[in-house]
């Protein structure tokens, strides 16, 4: 009886272990199959895949322009999202009276859940026309539109996570600062911000990760041409694309090596985002250790 009970326990434990290990399996699966699909393209182009010459009929598969576009759009989005997000988080965690906080926090978290296709729809129907009219651009399709949309999308994430990080700062530290005669703002600036900086960085990295990987919203408002605009900082020109957006526009009708090249860009995307998630996680763990250790 005792033995069977033990066996049962072991079986159950192993079932749980297998399901936990499944996540690892999925990651390996995804990486393996994407890489398997992409391998011919890597083999064909070598390091030229990071070049800027995209010309499938001539066998040139450089996605450098899309990588450049991803970087530009992400930087633009972060210029909007980081200051706003951190300011919003300070307001929520330190300033807002409790009733305001309990209503605003869930609302902002809700907004983080708006599906990206809805942002794309709004981008097409409101933003593109607005930019075209207001800024007298050749068209509204541009890096600027992409950066604005991504910035708006990333703000709720950064607010919500930075707010958590600031709330995690122990009370005693704050009270000690206030007891020394510092004003609340001085406490925020000199005590709370430095202590929660790793948590805030984790939030920012997560926001960047989302901006890099966002697909539907961006693909609808960009020009989707695999070229670096002239001059490269020209965010008003419609030429330009991001990795995700290029994959989604070209995948439907591509064939042969071109498809493989799109898979190759997905592999590159995967690696970039994986590095970001890991570093965000390390930062988050550092926060936990810091406050647990005292």
């Amino acid at each position: 009886m005792l033995l069977s009970r033990k066996i049962k326990e072991t079986i159950i434990k192993n079932i749980f272990f297998l399901s936990a290990a499944f996540s690892i399996l999925i990651i390996l699966f995804i990486f393996y199959f994407l890489f398997q699909q992409a391998f011919p393209a890597f083999q064909h182009s070598g390091l030229d895949i990071f070049g800027t010459n995209w010309n499938p009929p001539e066998g040139k598969y450089g996605i450098g322009a899309a990588i450049y576009g991803t970087i530009i759009v992400t930087i633009g989005a972060m210029i909007i999202a980081i200051p706003l997000g951190i300011a919003g988080a300070i307001f929520l965690s330190e300033l807002a009276p409790s009733y305001l906080r309990t209503t605003l926090k869930p609302i902002i978290e809700l907004l983080a859940g708006i599906p990206s296709i809805v942002f794309g729809f709004i981008g097409i129907i409101l933003l593109v026309g607005y930019l075209h009219l207001t800024f007298d651009m050749l068209s509204g399709y541009s890096y600027l539109a992409g950066a604005l949309i991504l910035g708006i999308m990333a703000v709720p994430i950064i607010v919500s996570m930075s707010d958590d990080a600031m709330k995690a700062v122990p009370r005693e530290i704050k009270e000690a600062s206030l007891a020394l005669g510092a004003t609340k703002w001085q406490t925020i600036k000199k005590v709370i911000m430095p202590t929660s900086i790793s948590g805030i960085s984790a939030a920012v990295i997560l926001g960047i990760g989302r901006a890099v990987g966002e697909t539907m919203a961006v693909s609808l408002v960009l020009g989707n041409i695999m070229k670096i605009p002239i001059p490269p900082w020209n965010i008003f020109e419609s030429k330009g694309t991001t990795v995700t957006s290029f994959i989604v526009t070209e995948m439907g009708e591509s064939s042969g090596l071109q498809t493989k090249a799109l898979f190759a860009s997905a592999v590159i995307l995967f690696i970039i985002v994986a590095i970001m998630s890991i570093s965000s996680n390390i930062l988050k763990q550092r926060v936990q250790k810091k406050f647990k250790g005292g």
């Binding site: 996540s23 690892i24 990651i27 890099v212 966002e214 994959i247 997905a266 985002v273 998630s277 965000s280």
Partner: peptide, 13 residues
């Protein structure tokens, strides 16, 4: 770490 990476993977991937 795997779960974290999985959470960050873009939906298009």
């Amino acid at each position: 770490i795997a779960a974290d990476i999985l959470q960050g993977i873009p939906s298009i991937v």
